[in-house]
Design a protein around this nucleic acid. Structure first.
Lengths: 237, 237
DNA sequence: TCTGCAGGTTGATCCAGATCATTCGTGGCA
DNA sequence: TGCCACGAATGATCTGGATCAACCTGCAGA
C-alpha cells in the first residue's frame, strides 16, 4: 500500500488506511503527531450525523473509512444531497463561521477530527499543507462545477450513468483492482436527491440500464458495471 | 472608496477599482508591486474569450471591471454556464494542468493577469495571500454547492429569482447604494444556460415577475427590483 | 414460522417546462 | 427614413420526468 519509506510511522497515524492520500500525508512525522494529538478518531454508525447545517464550523475531518453525505434542506422539506465523500477525502472546509450543510454517515464511517483553528495554524506554518489543502478545495470546486453541468443539462439516464462512473472511480481508488464492482451504500432516495430526480426515476433508469445489459445488480447496494464503454458514453461528462 | 491608509499606493495598483477587495489586497506594497510587475492589465471586448477549455492553465486573473462568464460545452452542443464573475473576483484557479472550461467576457472587461507559477510562489511566501486565496476558493465552492441546490431542486421561477438576487448582491457590492437596480449585461440565453432552462422559459418567467410587480424592466439589460421582499421569498435559498 | 414494515420496483396519469413557430421591438446602417 | 437583423416575447404543442398508487421483497422481531 505504498507507505512513505522516509517516515518511521511509529505513532498514531501508522495504520491510517488513507495515509498516503489524505491531506495530512504532506506533514512530516513530528508535525503529524502534533496535529493528530489535538484531536481524535471518531466512529459513526450509518445514519449518524457528523455536524448540522448552522453548527459552528470549528471542526474539520479526514474520512478514513465509510461514506459520508452532505446535504441541505429547504424550509418546505425539499432536500439536496450536495456531495458524497469517500475515504481519503476531507470534510468541513468552510469559508464562514458556520457549516452551510449537514454531514451524515451513509455507512459506518471513521474519521480523524481536527480543530479548525489549529489546522489553520498548521496551514500557516506548512507551505505543503496549505498547498495540498488548496489543491483539494480546488478539486472539490471543479467537481461541484461539473455537477452544475450534470444538473443543468443532463437527462435522467445521463445523470445516473455519470453518478455510477463517478462512484466507481472514487471508491475504486482504494482497492486498486479494476473490477467493475460498485458499492452503493446510499439509498435510492439519497441518489435521487443527489441527482435532482425522483426516487422512482432512479429506480426506473437503473432498471433500464439493467435491461440493456450495461449493468448488473448483485444486491440492493452492490452493482456490477458490465459494459463500462457504453456507460461512459452515456455519462457524457 | 476605503483605501487602506497604511499603504502609499504610489505604484501601478494605486487606482485599482477593486483594490480593497481583490486577493492581492492582502499583500504589502512591495510584494504587490513585485507580483504586479510580472504581468499586465488586459482589456477584453464583449464576447472576447479569456481562455479556452483545454488551454494550459498557466494564467490566473483578477477581474477589475466588467463581467466574465465561465462555461463548458458538450460534444452535442449543449452548453452550461458554470459561473458569472463580477469585479473583485478571481478567475482561473485550476487543480489540473488545463482549464476545464472556457472564460469569455460578457461585457467589456479589464483584468489583471498573473502567471500561475509565480502566483504560487507568492502564496508560498505569504501566509496571508495563501489564506485569502483559500478563503476565496472555499467561498466559490460554497457558491457552487448552492447552485447544486438551485439546479437540483428549484422550479423555474425560483431559479430566476435566486439569480436576480445573486446578481443584485454581487454587482451591488461595489457602488454601495441599495438601489434595487440590477445590470444584466448577459443575454437571456446566457441566463438560461446558467440556470439550466430554455431561453423561452427565462423570458416567460421574467414577464411573470414583471406582471406581478416584483420587477420592472428598464431596458433590455437593466432591471429594477421593486419588491425585494417577495423576490427573496421566491428565491428560497 | 408468521407478521410487519421499510425500501425498492413498476404502472398510470399529470404537468412544468422544452420545443417549435411566429411576432415584436430596437438599434445599426444605407 | 426605411430596411434589415438579431434578441426578446409570446403562443401552441409535445414530452420527460414528477406524482400518485399498488405491489413486491427481504429482513427483524415476536
Amino acid at each position: 500500500m505504498g507507505r512513505r519509506p522516509d517516515l518511521d510511522w511509529s505513532h498514531a497515524c501508522r495504520d491510517c488506511a488513507v495515509g498516503t492520500s489524505a491531506v495530512c500525508s504532506t506533514l512530516d512525522v513530528t508535525a503529524l503527531a502534533d496535529l493528530r494529538n489535538q484531536g481524535s478518531s471518531i466512529q459513526l454508525a450509518a445514519g449518524q450525523p457528523l455536524f448540522h447545517q448552522g453548527d459552528p464550523a470549528d471542526r474539520t475531518f479526514s474520512l478514513t473509512s465509510g461514506v459520508v453525505k452532505l446535504y441541505s434542506v429547504l424550509p418546505d422539506g425539499r432536500r439536496q444531497v450536495i456531495a458524497f465523500h469517500f475515504p481519503g477525502e476531507f470534510i468541513g472546509f468552510s469559508p464562514s463561521e458556520d457549516y452551510h450543510c449537514t454531514a451524515e454517515a451513509v455507512s459506518a464511517a471513521t474519521l480523524c477530527r481536527f480543530e479548525t483553528g489549529r489546522f489553520e495554524q498548521f496551514a500557516r506554518s506548512s507551505d505543503e499543507l496549505a498547498r495540498s489543502r488548496h489543491e483539494r478545495v480546488a478539486r472539490d470546486l471543479v467537481a461541484a462545477q461539473t455537477r452544475a453541468m450534470v444538473l443543468g443539462q443532463a437527462a435522467a439516464r445521463e445523470r445516473l450513468a455519470h453518478f455510477l462512473c463517478d462512484v466507481h472511480r472514487r471508491s475504486q481508488a482504494r482497492p486498486a483492482g479494476a473490477s467493475g464492482i460498485v458499492p452503493l451504500p446510499m439509498s435510492r432516495s439519497d441518489i435521487a436527491e443527489y441527482l435532482g430526480l425522483a426516487k422512482e426515476t432512479v429506480s426506473r433508469e437503473l432498471s433500464a440500464l439493467r435491461a440493456t445489459g450495461i449493468v448488473r445488480t448483485i444486491s440492493r447496494n452492490l452493482l456490477e458495471i458490465r459494459d463500462m464503454e457504453r456507460l461512459r458514453r452515456l455519462a457524457i461528462v
